[in-house]
Design a protein around this nucleic acid. Structure first.
Lengths: 228, 228
DNA sequence: CCGTTTTTTTGATCCGGATCAAAGAATTCC
DNA sequence: GGAATTCTTTGATCCGGATCAAAAAAACGG
């Protein structure tokens, strides 16, 4: 498919003149990635902006002993690794495809050139980074100040919201990944889901989650009510 | 003192034409804050950018039961609360003066207007936000993947670096605050400092820290060596 | 400078959640 | 569609670090 067409639909590039889009699309490279393939590693020298064009990508940190903390899971249309574009230096985390897909790459210099000429694009990028900062602040708050039950119930409520407030929805990724995203382990996640089921807040059937008592779940998320 | 002069020395506003600086300084408000005074609270509607002009300010999150996680400690010349400038909405955390000082405030609309006209300023802001994202990513990594001894030794080595690599330096803030910045408690911090002293890595005299075995401390920071 | 308040240290205990191990489900892939 | 791999659950145990309590040390204010 056509790169320029793809770029023109991204929120990030709204309002960018066609000629700039064309310039971008001519230097952009859209490469296929296989599920499990590393896209870059923490500390690698960074040369530009990446955008998921198909599939999904996880951005994560690893501990010396192999524990993983996922920072983001990016889907089609989402840019990642913006930081080194504006700061130079190297990638601050690892990126790996969790599904077979494609990743588009735009070299740093070209992008900066176009940003310098288009203040609107600069403001869009500022908004993107601001959004990431808010998400990171929430993650820090979760890790430091909240327990696993709080984080998980908030996550489930969030998924429900994404599904239009539906009482029934599918987990978007496998449970082990959710655990690493929430800063816990698969085992703990499984146990907490079990407790939520026992206390009648949810029903779990494989990847399908049914919220039975949204009120109670919200109370757990807000630490107003303990599980168990 | 003169606001325009102050602004003109900030890295953020380097290269901004005098006329723009003048415009900014005319709408900026520099107000005194007392030690312990709240500057804004999490969730407050945000109306502009803040910059510490004297003293120090802590940016932090609170848990329902009062535990505090410090996100940043900002000193003179450092901007804070940039996020809502580009995203709108409300402040994502609390800000409180930890020393008597002054805080300068620039209304959002004016700042945006000037950024739109000055791409260089936009790129500077992008670099500032990128730096914050790197710091947050490091904080998430610390909280999720590293223990208190790792975080504390890295923090001490960092302070030593700031002091030009000196083997002896002063803690810049009181120990309870360091604990909250590292995501732990005063008690735990005290115990870890005790162990580091026992094993001969450092000497502690009130706020004065002497690094006796930098090598060992670096190994603890990298989780290559356990304490105890 | 002395009494008061705030910080820091030390000790004892407790708890959430990680880890280890193994069984049970669900996917994947010829 | 059946064997193999990968995920998830469940059970038992362990450990880092929080919490509670109280003493000791510093910092502060009059």
């Amino acid at each position: 498919m056509n790169i320029q067409g793809f770029l023109s639909h991204l929120p990030l590039f709204q309002g960018l003149p066609d000629e700039e889009l064309k310039a971008l699309s001519e230097i952009a490279v859209d490469r296929p990635v296989k599920a499990g393939e590393m896209i870059f590693s923490d500390g690698d020298r960074a040369a530009g902006l990446n955008i998921v064009s198909a599939g999904r990508v996880k951005i994560f940190k690893l501990s010396p002993n192999g524990k993983e903390q996922i920072l983001h899971i990016m889907g089609p249309g989402e840019p990642f690794a913006e930081v080194p574009v504006f700061q130079g230096g190297n990638y601050p985390a690892n990126a790996q495809a969790i599904e077979t897909g494609r990743v588009l790459f735009i070299p740093r210099d070209e992008l900066l050139k176009i940003i310098r000429k288009n203040p609107a694009l600069a403001l869009d990028m500022l908004a993107v980074l601001s959004k990431r900062l808010r998400e990171f602040a929430a993650t820090i708050e979760n890790l430091s100040l909240r327990g696993v039950p709080e984080r998980l119930s908030a996550y489930l409520l969030h998924l429900s919201d994404l599904a239009g407030g539906a009482g029934e929805f599918e987990l978007d990724i496998k449970k082990g990944l959710i655990a690493n995203l929430l800063g816990t382990t698969g085992e703990s996640l499984s146990r907490v889901l079990g407790k939520m089921t026992q206390s009648g807040m949810i029903r779990v059937g494989g990847k399908k989650i049914t919220i039975l008592d949204r009120e109670a779940l919200a109370d757990v998320a807000a630490a107003k009510q303990a599980l168990d």
